[in-house]
Design a protein around this nucleic acid. Structure first.
Lengths: 199, 199
DNA sequence: AGCAATAGATAGAACGTTCATTCTAACGTT
DNA sequence: AACGTTAGAATGAACGTTCTATCTATTGCT
């Protein structure tokens, strides 16, 4: 039976994600993970070589999930793309306010700076997302500098998550229109009338 | 002698910051911190009640430093402000690429989600920075929605740091002009001609 | 069908290490 | 001699990991 094994692994990963959010990668012990997974400590080692492997699996799973969320936009026809993307800003902000996701992402980001294996997994997924965005902007919207526009948008969305942690009471109703303005700037070819500004 | 004491404390904080960047708040042990501070483990406890206090001191110091960096703009006269701010984007991006600062900030951000004391320190400093920005935009530039514009800029800058970790090879030469465009959008009262977009 | 053998699932104790913290004894300066 | 300063051993708890034992279910042979 292979289903059972997969289910158990998922059980461990869910428990681990919980603990990692609550205590951090290094603050969460195997004992806590085991207890939350309703499993013995030793048994976890039948599914994962060590704690690092659990962290790596979590990073992989979480990054894949994030990538899938972006992939939705690929199905949108080109003349609706800008409209759909700007319309989804509200739920985007809401999702960034989800502490679970945000903290896990921060933990991953910090860990990637000291663990090359994590960095590798993370960058692979980021490249995926980046290429998806880039090709959308270039092929669907015929935009120049698609790479830079992608980086701008990803910076903004990524920053939103940290911002909400720093200032949870922030007034979304006045911020969201501003974000939409930036998105229009990034999603429409208004490059030329701007070179006047760059001194 | 009070100078000596202050110097020793700084010695511990510097060593601790180093270790926290390299191993994380919970991955760094007192033994490592002591060794890097050229000090005995036990002696650190004469300056700090416990490890948490060291973390708190680091968070405080680092947040204050970040706030001071922003405070420079307060001295700039109002008719040069937009110019100066957009001109400093390049060094801003460079500073965000400094792994030391970025990782420490991520660690702080993640820790603030699970340690209320850290969250408190961090939010106090963020409020300081936010108010500084807000009053600058409102009083010096006479901008409406100064709060929202502040949040947008802080999101963007904060996101830039995470973005560079995710994609260090990112092409800054094409991204920076885009960032400057966003800054002009956020620093100039072009609110009206945009309501057309918000459906 | 019925027994033997095997493989995987599971729990929990045991290991050596490292952790944060405390304690004690020695040091250097006055 | 006294006092603040320092080093490092001592402590017990917690860590990640390994080991062993028991249990369950499937497979192969007759």
């Amino acid at each position: 039976m292979d289903k059972r094994r997969a289910a158990r692994i998922d059980q461990v990963l869910n428990a681990a994600a919980d603990c990692f959010v609550e205590f951090g990668f290094h603050g969460a012990g195997m004992a806590k993970i085991a207890k939350r997974a309703s499993m013995s400590v030793g048994h976890i080692y039948h599914y994962f070589e060590n704690k690092e492997a659990i962290i790596a699996a979590i990073v992989d799973r979480e990054s894949e999930l994030a990538a899938e969320r972006f992939a939705e936009f690929e199905e949108v026809p080109r003349d609706e793309l800008v409209h759909v993307m700007t319309e989804r800003v509200d739920e985007m902000v809401d999702s960034k306010a989800d502490a679970f996701q945000s903290v896990l992402n921060l933990e991953i980001l910090a860990e990637s700076q000291r663990n090359p294996q994590i960095a590798c997994i993370m960058r692979q997924h980021d490249e995926e997302v980046r290429e998806l965005f880039r090709s959308m902007l270039k092929d669907k919207l015929n935009l120049p500098d698609a790479e830079a526009r992608t980086e701008l948008l990803l910076s903004l969305f990524g920053g939103l998550a940290s911002r909400i942690i720093r200032h949870p009471e922030l007034d979304r109703h006045t911020l969201i229109p501003l974000i939409k303005q930036v998105m229009h700037l990034a999603l429409e070819p208004c490059d030329k009338d701007d070179k006047r500004k760059s001194e």
